[in-house]
Design a binder for these strands. Sequence first.
RNA 1: GUGGGUAUAGCUCAGUUGGUUAGAGUGCCAGAUUGUGGCUCUGGAGGUCGUGGGUUCGAAUCUCACUAUCCACCCCA
Length: 425
Amino acid sequence: MLTRAPKGTKDILPEETWKWQAIEKTAADICSEFGYREIRTPVFEHTELFQRGVGDSTDIVRKEMYTFTDKGDRSITLRPEGTAGVVRSYVENGMASLPHPVKLYYFMTIYRYEKMQKGRLREHHQFGVEVFGPEGPGADVEVICLLSMLFDRLKIKGVKLRINSIGCPKCRPVFRETFIKYLEPLYDDLCDACKTRYNINPMRIMDCKSETCSNIVKGAPSVTDYLCRECAVHFEGLKAGLENMGIVYTLDRNIVRGQDYYTRTVFEFVSDNVGAQGTVCGGGRYDGLVAECGGPSTPGIGFGLGMERLFLEMDSCGCPPPGEEPQGPAVYIAVTGREADAAACKLACELRKAGISAETDLMGRSLKAQMKYADKIGAAYTIVIGSSEMDSGSGEIKDMKTGITMSIQISADKIAEIIREERND
RNA sequence: GUGGGUAUAGCUCAGUUGGUUAGAGUGCCAGAUUGUGGCUCUGGAGGUCGUGGGUUCGAAUCUCACUAUCCACCCCA
């Protein structure tokens, strides 16, 4: 217990963290090119926020939340998705009075009590974006465009965009009625899960993967045929906008998504390389959510992208991470005779001040062992300091790649100068 | 919540029809004449064989339960 991380969690070790940093930087750079600013919100929120925001009938709220009562007798939940908290913050901090659109991005951990599987964890990381204000499809196009640019810059080719429109509170009930009427005579043929869905949230039957259900759905009326004029125009605008940007998409009328707050546009980027969990990124429009959370009626759109799934995708298609793996120090200062420790420590520190990475022995090891260590960590140069160097003030610097040594004066300035020269060759 | 596979050293894995001090490779530490890494050689540390019961003279090996892990269903990022 003591030496095992909780189920569904994963350590990200030093050999991986540099990749995370590189990808996060790539995403953050793109966001700032698009004019998005970073927001950081708490890991936990009042449970009610998710019940109201995400929706009581969703699986996320019904069976996947990490909910507990704190010492003040409040019901608290570890965020099971990113949007609700950002919306809460938008309302609470009066962002409604900022010039619109308000464009935000985030990197956050997400918590869901799930059974583990490839590409599915109990704590996972998401990169996400939220836009508040715009009503027209331009914002929908922009966030998809941003994602497309990210995949492009990461050289990811295997993810495919799928879009759909699920209508608005005006037209969805009409479709819903028609859909239910269509299903009624077929009720007995539905799978058990869908029988439950029929009563709670019939729209979800559309993305059931069981053969009988998906056959039933094939013959069902399509949401997109029942959109009200405004929703239809919006959807057409989205498609035209994507085409204008040269972004390839496929219509998938079975995309429903797991949050109740979505209206009109919903979309996913899917891949075959991340196990059975094909969705690398999912998002959509939520025109009623800000009002639902107590703010002024404000349309919004956003997405969440699963970082772990992005890594699976990159690994399986051999995309190298952007950026470079950290190198060893420029200089390793080995010590012989412990009386040189203090001098080595000082020299290392002076080198660092001069912008040269430097390490020295902390383990009290033999000179030979120190050289071995310098080699293993990939130090570019080594210098040995002992009594003779301290007396004479001069010594040797060794290029670890070639093994060639040259004599130098033991001073941070001289060493820094030589290393800079060598680097420029 | 439902199904199936797996569980031996930090890591990757051997381990015969059950047989007594459980192995290899790699990694780690130390040494191979005194102040210089990589190659090589030698030595060392490191395992309650996932946990708990059962069968047996004897279990890493057979059996049951539990736990963990991986994969699929479900759901989602």
